[in-house]
Design a protein around this nucleic acid. Structure first.
Length: 217
DNA sequence: TGAAGGATTTGT
DNA sequence: CAAATCCTTCAC
């Protein structure tokens, strides 16, 4: 019985040397391993007209099998089916009738798990920001619902792959930031997840320490 | 076929 | 703390 996945332990041995686009194989690990490794990586949003926005991931949460807070906890349904598939695809759902949330499907096929992207630092600001947003640019993508609104992400993008040239992409940490992480100097805080009624005690939320886009709670 | 409730955000 | 707002899930 050999497990084809890379080691579940995040860190230099696995993450080092990797640059550019994130391959599905890099995501083929438990969500609790992928979630902290995605901090400092970049989300890319591309539109058909060529417009592109890059953003640094600064807050994530992990959702795994056996986790009562995971949408796939009970069983496979039309909505959560993509979580049961191979890694590297988006799972986008509508919550409270008005906000969308973006997840990166992780782990191998048949193991329903995903990483919720909770906050981003936008490299370039989207157009049409109001005056309040212009004064607080680091809050524009602070929160899972807000970042989807800012990057025009909705369920039409669910089940689409993160890939070069696609509407959604993922890129490894810039080399200087990865070197910082390799030295163990990337300031990552691990704590409990937000807004859950079940599984609230699991410390499966990670964020870049002191980053202004991260939820306060 | 109906009803309850949710991995959110904002304003009172 | 409650509203906004609608889809998903589960019960009947």
């Amino acid at each position: 019985m050999t497990d084809p996945r890379p080691p579940a332990v995040p860190g230099p041995a696995f993450a080092k040397r990797l640059q550019g686009n994130i391959a599905p194989s890099w995501l083929a690990r438990p969500a609790t391993a992928v979630a902290p490794d995605l901090l400092g990586c970049r989300l890319v949003r591309r539109w058909p007209d060529g417009r592109t926005i890059r953003a640094t991931i600064v807050e994530t949460e992990a959702y795994e099998p056996g986790d009562p807070a995971c949408h796939a906890y009970r069983r496979r349904t039309p909505r959560n089916a993509v979580m049961f598939g191979p890694p590297g695809f988006a799972y986008v759902y509508l919550i409270y009738g008005m906000y969308h949330c973006l997840n990166v499907v992780s782990d191998r096929e048949g193991v329903p798990s995903a990483v919720l992207i909770r906050a981003l630092e936008l490299e370039t600001l989207p157009p049409h920001l109001d005056e309040k947003q212009r004064r607080q640019p680091h809050r524009v993508a602070a929160g899972p619902g807000k970042l989807c609104r800012a990057l025009e992400i909705d369920r039409a993008l669910s089940e689409t792959p993160f890939a070069p040239e696609a509407a959604l992409g993922l890129e490894h940490r810039p080399l200087d930031r990865q070197r910082t992480a390799d030295r163990g100097e990337l300031a990552i805080v691990q704590t409990t997840r937000i807004g859950l009624t079940q599984g609230a005690d699991r410390p499966w939320r990670w964020y870049l320490k002191d980053h202004p886009a991260v939820s306060k709670r």
